[in-house]
Design a protein around this nucleic acid. Sequence first.
DNA 1: ACTGTGTGCGCG
DNA 2: AAAGCGCGCACACAGT
Length: 558
Amino acid sequence: MHIVLDRGPGGAVVATEFDADGGALGSTELAASALPAFVREREAAHPRWVWSSTARWYPELLAAGVRVRRCVDLVLCHRILRASLLTAGTELARASDGPWDRLAAAVTAPASADAPPALFDVVADSADEPDAVSEFSRQQAAVAASVQPGRIRLLVAAESAGALIAEEMRFAGMPWRADVHDRVLTEALGPRVPHGRRPAKLEAMAEQVRELLGAPALNVDSQPELLAALRRAGLDVQSTRKWELRDLNHPVIAPLLEYKARSRLLTANGWAWLDSWVRDGRFHPDYVVGGVVTGRWATSGGGALQLPKNIRRAVVADAGWKLVVADAAQLEPRVLAGLAGDQGMADAGRGRDLYDSVVRAGVVASRHEAKVAMLGAMYGATTGDSARLKPRLARAFPRALALVDGAAAQGERGEQVMSRLGRTSPLPAGSWREVQERASQPNASAADERRARAQSRDWGRFTRNFVVQASAAEWALCWMAEVRLRLAELGSGRFDDSPHLVFFLHDEIMVHTPEAFAADVERIVRRAALDAGRLLFGEFPVDFPVTVAVVDSYADAK
DNA sequence: ACTGTGTGCGCG
DNA sequence: AAAGCGCGCACACAGT
């Protein structure tokens, strides 16, 4: 059963209900204020709520204490279905850009701190929002006409579940102890000072660097000034990057690297960050579902996907609660094994660390080499250890390597590639084609050809990685969606007394749970990983083990 | 005063 | 070790 929500005149809501066969059951017109009660009442029958955008509709429901199990996020699904090769040729895909494309672009645009989300610029008046009922039927027709309806149906369901989770995580927030964070900052930097000034300890380090370089007026934060000062001091460096500086033998290096690390802490996750993103003991980041081409999530504020390890100490469970932190081990190579149907690679990952097995099988000498070689194969390394070890990997896992090499070759030709469930890579830009075109002319110069070849390889590395990263993102969405539904059965479903997801980081999730439920949560998280593997790869026997830590602080999870 | 680009570094 | 994928953010700096 589906219930489609549309905006009517004057902020009213029109709810149109459909039975399981798609037959219309009629419409109800509601005042906006009556929506939460309506949703709460109908939710008992577990319908799938269909709305323009979860980011737009769900927050007010959550604020009213209403959660839903399932939805269709039309904007997110529109984007997938328009681009997917599995639905190419459908009416939805062939139409020229319309209001849903403009909405889709707005939803995934980064929101700036002082401007409201762009969504509301595009749809200035909510009554202007395009018609959800007709869009929903176009989307259903596209899915039905797909060459593989099962896959694309699962993808849009998973994406929509992700949208619900993102809003719920933002609403509930991740437990964050501002006092612990402040202590970390004060220890590292000195007492808090107004924004824009350097705290005492940091300033002392800057002064030390200036002295050791004999450059009293140096602004340590200025890359050009610092580079010049390092060279004047006799250091042969091309940049001020830490891995170039690290191996130099000069007394300024240690204090300089220390300064850079602490300065980074101040600017990226200092007191200003704390003021902006943490309130009432919770961190509320803005997730952008599908914000990355591969289907990974992005953030448009708060930098939740880049939380440095050194401040994870501030993530602490409430009294009487625990954090269950779960991480999918070697997710991308396992996904690759599934994609390629590479039995040998799947066997290597069975019941143990995949990289250890690669060593045990005599393919490479150390776990580190195994990891570097595997990542290099998936990223398209061309130099270094990683490229050198690739032939050995190819002998051990021919199908897996053939799959990524094939994806790279397609990209080099300017073709699109697909994830397991049908998310499709973008076409290269027009300028890319022009460069290829020029190089194929009879009068093309050697420089033209070199440029075309380099650009072609670049795009090949992108599509090579796309198939793996995008499929891994799908696995993670399925995993998390399954976890969410099962968690909802554990308690009341309220965020103040029941286990719920509070964080997601590509291949890692965190559940904040009353202590009494922690063991159940752990079981659910492991079980859901099995289910996700089956959803993506059916009976092909590839394992997806997860490491689970039940902790008080995120810092203790690894 | 604003905007766009380069650099550097955090995460997977 | 620092190159092979995907990101966001902050700052300095140069252009307007």
